[in-house]
Design a protein around this nucleic acid. Sequence first.
DNA 1: AAAGATTGAGTTCTCAATCTTC
DNA 2: GAAGATTGAGAACTCAATCTTT
Lengths: 150, 150
Amino acid sequence: MSSRWLTDEQERTWRAYLQVHARLTAQLNRELQAAGLSLADYEVLVNLTDVPDERLRPYALQATLEWEQSRLSHHLSRMQRRGLVSREDCDDDGRGAWVVLTAAGRDAITAAAPAHVDAVKRLFFDHLTARQVSTIRIISTRLLDHLDRG
Amino acid sequence: MSSRWLTDEQERTWRAYLQVHARLTAQLNRELQAAGLSLADYEVLVNLTDVPDERLRPYALQATLEWEQSRLSHHLSRMQRRGLVSREDCDDDGRGAWVVLTAAGRDAITAAAPAHVDAVKRLFFDHLTARQVSTIRIISTRLLDHLDRG
DNA sequence: AAAGATTGAGTTCTCAATCTTC
DNA sequence: GAAGATTGAGAACTCAATCTTT
């Protein structure tokens, strides 16, 4: 039987959690700007880099990024306009398309990655014990299980 | 001496953390829509409700919300257009303004709060032990300290 | 009809510039 | 000049509608 409101501890925890995320992503975005990328750009490029042939179907990107379909499509269009990715028709499936990393896209993430990884460590992991990291991973996994179904 | 890349554990933790936040806020936003509010609206209204006279200066709101100055200003204009808040001149400081909760704003958050609080518990706190909640609060506070300075 | 993907309109956010008062 | 706040233009996101192929 849970009360209608949050406890003090929960309230403080919830607000702190939201604040951390807001500041963290704001800061990471700011630092990535130096390399001409947004966090969203970076995430797209990382996924393309991680994969053979450096190409993915939009629905596959969507699955890992957890974006709305149209958000992804619009974002890819903008990245394409900037030369970071290209689109190719898919032979296997006439409806489908490939999103392909371009040389410029590869250069961009190669240039941005070291500083970004550094920032993630400096702003996040450097302040956590191994045990805390493990806890965050366990909690996140658990929450994701339930968020799947709403 | 930290390596240039994240460890496997860090990589998995980082991605899971980002995913949790994405899904969590997406879900909370969806559920708030039923009450005609966004999460952003809700956060503004909560802060106004928490305070004597139900009014705040924009710079004070900005400090707790961690938003860009102009984002706040634009958002307040939209909320004002929808009748959720109003703006009044500030007597003490000719440059300043008050953001004031309207009756409609009070009604809106009163109507939305129970379901929203419920959702936060159902999607977040119900899956955490007391110890884990405490860990999250401690970690968040620690990270915020450092994020202050960049 | 369902799956893969895009489009357009409207909303929200960011960045830089501006305006006023201190 | 600095602080408090707004504005406008462009970028990014959401929602619903659409198009094509399966």
